[in-house]
Simulated scan of single mutants.
Amino acid sequence: MRQAVLAHHAYGGYMEILLPLITLAGVQLLAVISPGQSFIVVSKLALSSGRRSALGAALGMGAGSVIWAMSAIAGLAFILEKAAWLYGLMKLAGGLYLLFLAFKLWKHAPERPDLSAGSGRYVTPRQAFTLGLVTQLANPKVVVFFGSIFFALLPASSAPWVYVASLVIVFCNETGWYGFVSMFFSTARTQLVYFRAKTWIDRIMAGALGVIGIGLAMDARETLAR
């Protein structure tokens, strides 16, 4: 009986950690998929310089996201040490930011990203990696995302392996999605297939982000009320 109780508590403890990581993976993937500056860079490289260069940019963007994620984790540790009440406010900011992303994604769902201005100059995979890294480090959406979502989703005082796992998730989401973009968008025909379904894809993602954002905002309100 005692072993069953201990196993139940251990299972509950693992789920308390795994659920935030799963949610983080889903939310970050939805944010990555939403078309933006990085999407345009990889798509243009796929058309003008080929898949290898576009894959190089995807790796650079993954590296840039990990840098921002590490900065967010360092900020989380500092706030928990200096002013724990700010943790609740940052959770609320994360929920509201997801609602903002959902609104923007829904509003601009019918619009097509402008891929017509791509340069015909060949970019090597190494140059593309640097371009992807710089693009990600200079992207204000990425800065705000990691500055708020990590506070909202990761449990306070998590074990070090949780932060390592979150960095792996961020890198895999970023490079995995843009790696897919580099393969899929290497021809104009496959771009047309995506654009035909883009409105519905974006609005489904917007709805998912909105539901998660409302849940985070309500959870943050309960945290601040304690």
Rank of each mutant, 00 (worst) to 15 (best):
I79H: 08
L80A: 15
A83M: 12
A84K: 03
W85G: 03
L86H: 04
G88H: 10
M90H: 04
K91F: 01
G95A: 03
L96Q: 01
Y97F: 13
L99N: 01
L99A: 08
L101Y: 06
A102R: 05
A102S: 12
F103K: 10
F103E: 07
L105V: 04
H108A: 13
P110M: 07
E111T: 15
E111R: 14
L115F: 01
L115E: 07
S116T: 09
G118M: 14
Y122Q: 15
V123F: 00
V123W: 02
R126K: 13
R126N: 13
T130C: 10
G132F: 15
G132W: 15
Q136P: 06
L137G: 03
L137V: 10
A138G: 13
P140D: 05
K141T: 10
G147I: 02
S148F: 12
A152H: 02
A156Y: 12
P160A: 12
P160T: 02
P160L: 06
V162A: 01
V162Y: 04
A165R: 07
A165T: 14
A165G: 10
V168P: 08
V168Q: 11
V170L: 04
T175P: 08
G179M: 10
V181T: 02
M183R: 10
M183I: 11
F185G: 00
S186F: 02
T187V: 07
T190M: 01
Q191S: 07
Q191N: 04
Q191A: 01
Y194V: 02
A197R: 14
K198N: 14
I201F: 12
R203H: 03
M205T: 02
M205Q: 10
A206W: 06
G207W: 07
G207S: 13
G207V: 11
A208R: 00
L209A: 06
G210E: 00
G213P: 02
L216P: 05
A217R: 09
M218F: 09
